[in-house]
Design a protein around this nucleic acid. Sequence first.
DNA 1: GCCTGGCACTCCCTTGTGCCGACTGCTAGC
DNA 2: GCTAGCAGTCGGCACAAGGGAGTGCCAGGC
Lengths: 356, 356
Amino acid sequence: MNDKLELDKRKAFILATVVYEYINTAEPVGSVTLTQKYNLGVSSATIRNEMAELEAGGYLVQPHTSAGRVPSDAGYRTYVDRLMQPETLTKDDARRIRDQFRDASRELSEVVEQTTRLLSGLSGNLAIAIAPSRDSHAFKHVQLIWLSARTSLAIVVTSGGVAAQRVFEWSSDVAADDLTRLSNALNSRFGNRVMEAIGANDVEAVCAELGVTAEIRDAVRSIFATARQTDEPEIAAAGAQNLLDQPEFHDLRKLRAILRIVEEQRTLYDLIADELNADGATAAPDPTPHVRIGHELRADELAECSVVTVPYRFGDRGVGMLAILGPRRMPYGRLIALASGTARSLGDHLSDVEIR
Amino acid sequence: MNDKLELDKRKAFILATVVYEYINTAEPVGSVTLTQKYNLGVSSATIRNEMAELEAGGYLVQPHTSAGRVPSDAGYRTYVDRLMQPETLTKDDARRIRDQFRDASRELSEVVEQTTRLLSGLSGNLAIAIAPSRDSHAFKHVQLIWLSARTSLAIVVTSGGVAAQRVFEWSSDVAADDLTRLSNALNSRFGNRVMEAIGANDVEAVCAELGVTAEIRDAVRSIFATARQTDEPEIAAAGAQNLLDQPEFHDLRKLRAILRIVEEQRTLYDLIADELNADGATAAPDPTPHVRIGHELRADELAECSVVTVPYRFGDRGVGMLAILGPRRMPYGRLIALASGTARSLGDHLSDVEIR
DNA sequence: GCCTGGCACTCCCTTGTGCCGACTGCTAGC
DNA sequence: GCTAGCAGTCGGCACAAGGGAGTGCCAGGC
C-alpha cells in the first residue's frame, strides 16, 4: 500500500462511486459500468487507468484478473472518513424510533433488549447493545423485608431500578424491627452514592454499628455485591438472521464463525466495548458514531465485517454502547444516522426512566 | 397411506433400522447398506420387497427413483412410539446438568434463559423455554417506598421474585406513613394469594378502605397489573446456530423460514405452548416429554423439523415448558432423556429459589 | 501530456455431455 | 417365501466448450 498517493478530485469521485456501487450491488465494479451509469465525461479506458492507480494505492482490489474492482479496507475507510455524504434520519425511521420509545418498557435491561430489536429491524443488520455498568448507577434504596421469622427478602434499588433481590433463610429468628433499622441506616448512609463507591468495608461498617449478626452482615454484603455486578456486563444482540440476506454470508462457514462470536457474550463485549473503556465511565462520551472496518476489528472472522458503534448516556455518568454489525458493504451513512438517532432517543428515554 | 398395514417383527426391525441409520448418516438408506451393516439373515432382495411394502404403507418415502429410503412422518412416529429404545441420561450429561444448576442464577427469568443455553449446548439443537405464567405465582409482598415527597417506588414480589417495580411521580405531596399503611394493608389482605385471584376490584377495595388518593389507587392498580403480566409470556430461545450444522438446513431458504419463526416470540410461543394450555395451569402436568414430528407441527416451514416438549413445575401450581427444536432426523431417545432430565433439575432448582 | 478506441488476453461461470455408481423392481428358479 | 441376477432409472461428478465481463496495453489523436 502506498500512503503517499494523493487522491485528486477525479480519483476521489471514482473511488466514491465504486464503493457506492459495490455497496448497492454486491458485484465487483468495472470501468464500463461506471461510465455508463455515472456521468464521468471520460472513456472507460481512462477510468481503467485511474482504477489501476487506485489499486496500486491500496484503495481497491481485484478479486481475480478479469473481474471489476472491489473496495479494500482502506478504500472503505477513505469513503467513510472523507468521501461519503453524511445522512440524516429519514422521516420514516425517525417516526419508528419515536414510536418504539413512546411505549417502551421502563425497565433498564428490557429497554436495552428492545432497542437491539428496533435497531436490527431498522438497519437490517445485527444490532448489539451494552447496558451501562451498574457500578455507575446511583444507590437509591435497600429494603430488608420480613417475610417470616426465618426468611427475609432483600432488595437493592439503584437509579437503574431493582439491581438485586434475594431471599435469605436465617438459622435463627430475626425481628422485623431489626431489619427496618438496618435498612434505614444503610439508606441514610449510602443515599445517592455511586454504586462503585460502596465497598464491602462500608457495608460492614454500618452492620457493625447496629450490631447485627454475622449472618445478616454477610447477607447484606452479598446483596450489595450482586447489585454492583461488576463481572458480567449486560449485553444483548438481535437480528442475526438479517445477515443471511447478505450474499457475503451465503458461505455457511463464514456465517458460523460470526454467529460463534455473537453467541459468546464475552467476545462480543470485547468487540464493542473498546471505546467504552477507553473513554472511562467518568468522562462524557463522544456521542459521534465510530466505524471500524474489516481488519480494524482485529478478528479474522470479522475481516469482511464492519461495526458502527455509538455510546448512549444513562443519567449523568453512566454510559452504554449501541452497535451495528454487518458486512463491510454496509450503507454507512444510513447506519450511522440510525445508530446515533437511536442512541439519542435511548438516552432521552432512560433519563425519563431513571430513578432520581 | 394404508393404516391397516400391520408391522410384523421383521418389518418393524427394518423400519427401526432405516430410521436409526438415516438419523445417523443423513443419507437415504438402501437395501444393500442395510444387509451389510446389520445382521438381517436375509438377502438385500428380500429387504427390497419389505421396503417396498413399508413405502406402500406410508412409513418410508423415496426421494427419487434410484435412491434409498427415508422415513416419512408416520415412519418417525412409529419409531418414536413403538420401536426405539428409551434412553437414560448419560453420566456426562447428568453431570453437566447438575453443575449448571448448582451455580445457576436465583432469578426466575435468568434461570430460564440459562436453561435454554444449557439445553441447546447439550442437545446440539435449538432450545426454547417458556417461563411459568406469573398469574400462577403466589403474591408475597408489595412495598411502596417513599423516595421523596413527590416520588415513590413500588415493588411487587411474588413467589417468583420481583415481578414489577416502578417509580411514580405524584402531583401532590405524599406521606411516608400513608405508603407504609397501604403496603401493610395490601400485604395482609393478599398474602400468599395466587396472583390470578387478585383483580383490579380487590386492589381498589383496599385503597378505598384506607381512603388514599385516586392517583395512588391508579398507581397501585397498574403495578399489580404489570406484576400479573398476562399478555406477554416470557420466552427464551438459544442455539439457533446449532441448526447450521444440520445438512437439511444448508438450504438458506429453509433456514431463514425457521429463524423467522423463532424470532417471532408469538409464533414461537404458540408452537410450544399447545400442551401447556391444554393441560391448564391448575392440573398437575404430565411430565412425560411429547414429540411432534414434521407436519404434526402444523407449520409448513417446520415440515422437516421435530419438536420435543416437556413441562416443568414451578412450585405447586406453576408450569413452564422446555422444548428442543431440530430436524426430524434428530436423536429422539437422547433428546427426550435430556429434556426430561433438564426439566426435572430445573423444577428442583426453582423450588429452591421460590419464595415461600 | 492526457485521453481514447481497439485488441488480445485472462478468468469465471454456465451449459451440455458422458460416465459412474447407487439403488430399485422384476423375474425366474430354488 | 427367499434369492440371484439383470435391466432400468436417476443423481452427481468430471470435463470440455463457449460466452461474457473486464482488464492491460498500445498506437494514434486532440
